[in-house]
Amino acid sequence: MSSSSPPTTTDEFIKGLWRENPVFVQVLGMCPTLAVTNSAVNAVAMGLATTFVLVMSNLAISAIRRFVPKQVRIVTYILLIATFVTVVDYAIAAISLPLHKALGAFISLIVVNCIILGRAEAFAGKNPILPSLADGLGMGIGFTGALLTLGVVREVLGMGTLFGVALFPAAFQPWVIMVLPAGGFFTLSAWMLVFNALRRRQRALSEPA
């Protein structure tokens, strides 16, 4: 948050993309980040599903924040989040069974994704509807983008395809480890290395010499 003026709705949206990116900065939601980024399609689907839940739960929680006694707020939040997750689960199964199968239990596990409860507790429970919507959307898109960066690297190296389209001639040797869980850890840490280096440089430039 900028120190001079109160943050605008646009600020709330933008912070999730980079400065407070849920994956690379807050290091939240590691379970889906590692587990379902073995292809770009899975990564995007998981990112969009999470974004939907995040936006809806932020909206709902912000709307009812004045009526929820603080003793039962976590229960209420989880109830709402679980409902939206169930809706997403049905929707994905209706859109594409193979995709539903590929994401597997990780759709249901969106309920326990720390990003969502984290935003509910840290932001939506204390802020009006519009900033909460912007916050949820920004975090969701930041999460989707982060998953996509992993998914692209893992799919291109691990299968030689991108969004299912072959990028290389048939002789391409897939790097099997990239689609295995170990590849998720390697790719995540490599991206984190890159992004931390970038941010350090950014900070060094912005500071007065």
């Binding site: 040797q173 790097w175 099997v176 480890i177 990239m178 295995l180 170990a182």
Partner: peptide
């Protein structure tokens, strides 16, 4: 070990 997991056939 990484090679073994990456290129198991080769």
């Amino acid at each position: 070990a990484v090679m073994q997991a990456t290129f198991p056939v080769a």
